[in-house]
Simulated scan of single mutants.
Amino acid sequence: MGVFQCDELDLATVRELIEDIDDHYQISETTLLMLDRQPDDRELIISLFRSVHTIKGDLGIVGFTPAMPLMSAVEDLLSLLREGDIQYSPMMSDLILLVLDRVRSYVDSFRAQGFVEYDQAQVQELSQHIAAIVGDIQASGDQAYQQKKIAEVIRILDPSVKITELESADNTRNFVDTFLSELGYSQDEDVEFFRRIMDPVEQRSQYWQGRSDRILKMALILNQLGGSPVDEKQLAVAVYVHDFGMAFMPLNLLHKDSTLSNSEILLLRSHVTSSAHLLQFMDYWQPAREIVLQHHEAANGSGYPYGLREKEICDGAKILAIADTFDALTHQRAYSTHQKRPIIRAVKEVNDCAGKQLSARWVEIFNQAVQPVLLAHSTKSIG
């Protein structure tokens, strides 16, 4: 382990530098979130490079050895992005954010204690891996290979990011089974019927398997933390039915990586009414149907299909929207595998949507639900 402390600069100078680092960290984080939606925006790419360059410069003034190799390697990577030698991707964004989070944890530790302990060997290993990516990009134009190498570094930075394992899917299903059983819903109930209907739908794509159970697990936790305003049975059926309409979409559209056309967007959006139609003539399940119809509505009125605002959206739909979004952010398709994304990144993106696409109140409850996970994550990542 290495120890960094700085006795050469006065505390006022150090505090000023840390405040500047904090400001540019926030700019970098916001820019990365915007780039996920506008990956070809040159001004955003240049802004990101400048912020990272400034952070590196501030750290260089105090000779902040725990972070300098990492920041230099990331700056080299961003130079290639700025020059157009590599395409922006969510995977690259994850890598940059994880490095910045690692550096931020070092800075926070230094601010609190006046020194920071860090694993020199790990910092060196990570820096070399990122430098190797830069070298591979310069030597080869193989985008798939570059993304694969980025994924490898991400898994070193955040060990919780790994290929989805069958065991974790089984654990999730067992959690849901136990939860519903405790509520008195036996496997002979309609809940199990709708669950079984979704099994073949999820088998259509390697990226969907186990998705409904994962979403329901989060939805049940959120509902419970929020005082259980939604009947769990209605919530469970809504979760299992909400994407049923996707079964009738062409797989090449569902797996498309490039920008969707207006007609393709409209086709995908039609899955909401198609899914809700499954419950149209079942009187008992009308609350579940309402949840399904509204789960893509947005707090600010920008959602679909009706453009409802937060006060008009039922709690079940608000819960489902957050659970659905979180699952989509933490389980991204990559290289014919199913790779999780950093949880910390997904949490930040969910929070970025608070009061916009997602209910601010329920995002606060979501933060309560994931706080134990984030605390465990931060404890592991500081070493």
Rank of each mutant, 00 (worst) to 15 (best):
R42K: 13
T379S: 08
V292E: 03
M218T: 13
G316E: 00
E290Q: 12
I61N: 02
R309P: 03
A317S: 05
R82D: 06
I221S: 07
R333P: 15
F179D: 10
L70H: 07
V350H: 05
A112E: 14
S205Q: 06
P250N: 07
Y335P: 00
D101G: 06
D142K: 13
V99F: 04
K256V: 02
D41H: 09
Y88T: 06
H277L: 14
L32N: 01
G141L: 05
L260A: 12
T325F: 02
R361K: 13
F244T: 06
Q128C: 11
Q120L: 09
F281S: 14
G355C: 06
P200F: 08
F366W: 07
V3G: 02
T178A: 09
F326P: 00
H295Q: 07
Y284E: 15
T259M: 12
A317K: 00
S47N: 11
F366K: 01
E232V: 13
K348I: 00
S89W: 05
F4I: 10
I156K: 12
V153W: 01
G210M: 04
F248A: 08
M1F: 14
H129N: 11
G57L: 05
G227D: 15
I21W: 03
R37F: 06
M92F: 04
E297H: 10
S51F: 01
V176M: 02
L375D: 15
Q286A: 12
R173E: 08
G57K: 02
K233D: 11
Q368K: 10
G307I: 08
A132D: 12
P200C: 10
Q280A: 15
Q38N: 10
E117Y: 04
Y118V: 05
H255P: 01
S270A: 11
Q113T: 12
G141Q: 09
R104N: 11
Y185M: 09
L180Q: 03
